[in-house]
């Protein structure tokens, strides 16, 4: 492919069948980017959850009122919801067919987007209300 100056084969012949040159790889790539982000974020989330275990209502609000825990849990929720949206998309595309697939994709996107928004709303409300 890179030796197109020397080879008789065209650059197009070398690139053909290697996969999409446009958006085909984007979903797989986003899955990996969100996975990588979720490794430290989940560990932070478990750590924070353990620290919240003993706390009552006021204690939880005080802890989540601090910037670092608030940003950590909001970021975890956002990235996790995007990651699980992509994951459920591929599950639906594997197992659901026909018109039901379209409804399932819409329902799943609403579910993941709704949870992400609800989590961020709640964290902001704890911090500012």
């Amino acid at each position: 492919m890179t030796q197109s100056g020397k080879s008789l084969r065209t650059a197009a012949a070398g690139a053909r069948y290697l996969g999409s040159a446009r958006l085909g790889a984007q979903e797989a790539w986003l899955m990996r980017v969100t996975s990588a982000a979720l490794v430290p974020l989940s560990i932070g989330f478990v750590w924070l959850s353990l620290s919240l275990l003993n706390k009552d209502y006021n204690g939880v609000r005080a802890e989540l009122g601090h910037p670092l825990p608030a940003i950590l849990i909001a970021l975890f929720a956002l990235v996790a919801c995007f990651h699980m949206h992509l994951g459920m998309r591929s599950v639906i595309l594997d197992y659901v067919h026909g018109r039901a697939r379209e409804w399932a994709l819409i329902a799943s996107a609403c579910y993941a987007g709704g949870l992400a928004l609800a989590c961020v709303y709640a964290v902001l409300r704890i911090g500012f209300v």
Binding site: A77, A80, A112, R125, I126, V129
Partner: peptide, 17 residues
């Protein structure tokens, strides 16, 4: 986990209310 995130959302919303 997809379904379990509902628990996290419930927790955060409850703490915010």
């Amino acid at each position: 986990l997809y379904l379990g995130v509902m628990m996290l959302t419930w927790f955060l919303l409850a703490a915010s209310l």
